[in-house]
Nucleic acid binder design. Structure first.
Lengths: 333, 333
DNA sequence: TTGTACGCGTTATCAT
DNA sequence: ATGATAACGCGTACAA
């Protein structure tokens, strides 16, 4: 308590320099209509007193914080960190600062985060959360805070969106596998509450298999490397082969490590595909075949779009990132 | 421009409900001295109008922002993301929100970040930056914003610190290696501008070797998986063995992958040790022997300490995280 | 070029 | 229990 007590204010600079707060304010905001001599004097006292303008008061007065709200799941995933990094990179370059709001993969948390975003008075927001509905975004919209929604195809006056396209590649990859002569039955790793993206992929996985009349499997799994690893060590004691599609690198790596460690060969016995590939896909061995979307690029792009949206100069309100299938050594085709 | 225009203010709630703004304010802050009936009425109009208090105005009035500034390098490292995650977890639980300030491994950037932290009016700050000096921290101190400095042993009135102890373990690990009969000459991977921690470790590495009279090497390296991998593929064409100490998992993995890919055996021919281990140390193969500090725990601890500091109830201003050597399969001992 | 005074949206003090 | 009103620190018409 009583922190920030002895903050130097513009009043003190005004008094100490002998000029009015208006003049001091002009010096701070680097306006041109101030005499060189007084500017120097004011700047001197600013330095001498160690004055730093309060971003809070500035924001309240101008109705602009230079603050961007970022809503992301609090899961400690590499691809989320990558996206955050991309956002931050261009935000900083453009003079914005990021405020973090995290959700725990539940819709209530996401709604709460949105509330907070509104109260926090940010200039704009980037939302990456699977659980959000269109009506939820409408809410933000009604408060007219410019928003980019990632991985959710929504729209609105002050809303732009970035969508991921995994399903086409997934379908192609599956079909191609069988056409090339792939013989293993595929298993989709189902993770409870892992968001809309995974759900959509699973649906496409099922549809594709039904369409071509191939058997398929779905296994429930924990979203944890260690538990998945243990589960699959057990699994591979009785099942000596399979083709597994996992949500992200860690999980995919858990499966191929389990296979390798019980003496099976990847990809000769067991094949593994990672849906959301990061750089770890080519660090683990065998390297993971994966669907790649450069999340850092996604972050950058969303921030650029948001800035345009804030300036009311965003032309295309929607941007699509198409996932690329990168064949590495964990699959045959 | 003109964003946030139609924000509903406390005035409008006051007018619409028929009560004064003072009463509305009391309802918002859940004060007890307000009649049940009026409370309900006010809450109803708040809901009806969709009123959300402005955190900005609240902060200005109360001199409390519920905002924590976090200064971290903008490098996209897993261990940084882990720490951020830890900080965020307890911050949220305690009703704080995180504002991010990133630096690019230069002292100037770090100083700039500090400036920003001060202007941003945060309730407290957590600084994780290798480049910072004591005098820099003194600066923050003079503005009396409670601060926890990670990986830097500084002190001050409103400053706490968390320090990492790698050097003791490093020394022990090195000595133990030779005592157990390790025969390879060790090489320290030097990365330019990678901060004080690495520098200290390197120094200890050299000291230890001089003390026991063993030959050692230092190699310059890029802080990039791919380039390091390529460099070492070249390296291993002529050098068929070695013991390498790398800063973090990615770099260590690059070395062991390079070795493996040119046909060398880890750890029989080439041994690798990772200084800052993350969970990827046990995902890559062979699993990486590493120095472990749970960065998520570091994050949590710093946030807890900061809260105590803010409440002026922090007893021990310094906390030490001792790194643990975890022997896995990339080293013999 | 410089200064006065009001507004930004709250909280808090003091009356009533 | 409720209501005026002065802060909080700054920007900015409007005047001078």
């Amino acid at each position: 308590m009583e922190n920030l007590k002895n903050r130097v204010t513009i009043y003190q600079v005004s008094k100490a320099s002998g000029y009015s707060i208006a003049t001091v304010s002009r010096v701070i905001s680097k306006k041109s209509n101030v005499a060189e001599e007084t500017r120097l004097k004011v700047e001197e006292t600013i330095k001498r007193l160690g004055y730093k303008p309060s971003a809070l008061a500035q924001a309240l007065a101008t109705n602009k914080s230079t603050n961007i709200g970022v809503v992301i799941p609090n899961a400690n995933y590499v691809y989320i960190a990558n996206m955050l990094n991309g956002i931050n990179e261009v935000a900083n370059k453009k003079g914005f600062v990021l405020t973090l709001f995290t959700t725990a993969h539940s819709r209530d948390e996401a709604l709460l985060a949105i509330e907070k975003v509104i109260t926090t008075h940010v200039d704009g927001a980037i939302i990456f959360d699977d659980e959000l509905d269109e009506e939820d975004v409408a809410k933000i919209n009604s408060y007219s805070v410019p928003t980019i929604v990632v991985n959710s195809n929504v729209s609105g006056e002050r809303v732009g969106s970035i969508i991921f396209s995994y399903r086409n590649v997934l379908e192609k990859t599956i079909k191609n596998y069988y056409e090339q002569g792939g013989k293993r039955e595929m298993t989709f790793i189902h993770v409870h509450d892992s968001g809309r993206l995974l759900t959509k992929c699973e649906k496409k996985f099922v549809e594709t298999h039904k369409e071509i009349g191939r058997p398929y499997h779905i296994i429930n799994c924990d979203d944890s490397y260690t538990r998945t690893y243990n589960d699959f060590v057990e699994h591979f004691k009785t099942n000596k082969n399979g083709y597994f599609i996992a949500y992200r690198d860690s999980i995919a790596a858990a499966i191929e490590n389990a296979a390798t460690d019980v003496g099976l060969k990847v990809p000769q016995d067991v094949e593994v595909l990672s849906l959301v590939g990061t750089k770890y896909a080519h660090i683990v061995r065998p390297t993971l075949s994966s669907m790649q979307i450069d999340m850092q690029e996604v972050g950058k792009r969303s921030m650029y779009m948001l800035i345009d949206l804030i300036n009311e100069s965003l032309e295309n309100k929607s941007y699509k990132f198409e996932a690329q299938f990168v064949k590495r050594n964990s699959t045959e085709y």
